[in-house]
């Protein structure tokens, strides 16, 4: 019996390993492309009538010549550095604004009972159902055409920050609810104002939740593509996602730059994601699992 089990596991391992290789192949392919130092979508120049082995070599995710040329040129020859800077600034501003707005609102929802409280919370929840494309056209008309905030940081930042509010508010409210009210009460008796309590007591206590909310806001802005491509028309104002598409969309095909840029953009996000996945999953399915 025991012998049978180990044998089964070998087949399972073989299956799992082959599937895993298949699954991470695109990742390896991008890595290989980024270190290949060339721009073509193929890793290897194939001869006229390639043999089986030559073709096999072409699909192996190993570059013909190792080089960091793509990584250096994407900074020096291309505007990628600028795009990345745009993305960093926009994402950080979004995070700051989004977290500030979410914290104050969540605090009020958690600590005060006031007329209109339930209605506002419901409205926040319902707004999550509005489809992106339905919002895209009015936002384009309002922000770009009316307010003329196209091609500016502030236009994207206020849109990103507000769209991330509902999720952040619900998440923070849940956390604030777990902070015992006694602490505030005794502070109130000691003569502290609401403002002091909020800044000095609640915010420091809610640090972990605020960190998660901040990361969520950051990642929303960092990975967003559609709004950015509609709002940012001039090349100098592209964010990293729009810029990466610029490398390989339309008529240009600079796959090497795209691959190098992708690696640079993905690394922080992937690292964060792997760290935070358990919170994300519990947040997504919270309430559905009894």
């Amino acid at each position: 019996m025991a012998e049978l089990k180990t044998k089964n596991h070998i087949w399972l391992h073989i299956g799992l390993i082959s599937f895993t290789l298949l699954a991470i192949y695109p990742v390896l392919w991008v890595l290989a492309l980024s270190f290949s130092g060339q721009q073509s979508v193929g890793l290897i120049d194939l001869p006229q009538d390639p043999t089986f082995l030559e073709r096999l070599r072409a699909i192996l995710p190993v570059p013909e010549h190792w080089s960091v040329k793509n990584f250096t040129e994407v900074w020096t020859e291309q505007q990628f550095g600028r795009w990345l800077w745009n993305s960093v600034v926009i994402s950080l501003m979004t995070t700051l604004l989004g977290v500030f707005l979410a914290c104050t609102a969540a605090y009020a929802f958690s600590r005060f009972r006031f007329p209109g409280r339930n209605l506002s919370m419901l409205a926040f929840l319902v707004s999550q159902m509005f489809p992106g494309t339905l919002m895209l056209i009015p936002l384009f008309i309002i922000i770009v055409k009316q307010l003329e905030l196209g091609n500016t940081y502030i236009g994207l930042v206020i849109v990103y920050a507000t769209t991330s509010i509902p999720f952040c508010v619900w998440m923070l409210k849940g956390y604030f609810d777990t902070i015992p009210y006694d602490i505030e009460e005794s502070a109130l008796i000691d003569g502290a104002s609401r403002m002091t309590i909020f800044w000095r007591i609640i915010l420091p206590l809610a640090k972990p939740a605020i960190a998660i909310t901040a990361l969520f806001s950051f990642m929303t802005a960092w990975n967003e593509f559609i709004l950015a491509s509609v709002f940012m028309e001039s090349e100098a104002n592209y964010t990293a996602p729009v810029g990466l598409r610029f490398f390989v969309g339309g008529f240009s095909s600079q796959w090497g730059y795209f691959a190098a840029g992708s690696v640079i953009v993905s690394l922080p996000v992937v690292a964060l994601f792997l760290q935070l996945q358990k919170y994300l999953i519990s947040g997504l399915t919270a309430g559905s699992v009894k």
Binding site: P26, V27, G249, S266, Q277
Partner: peptide
């Protein structure tokens, strides 16, 4: 390793598969 595809921004995934 198997969770990696989820972690990568999806617009990058899309462009990679296009390639």
């Amino acid at each position: 390793l198997l969770i990696l595809p989820w972690a990568i921004p999806n617009y990058i995934t899309a462009l990679v598969w296009r390639g």
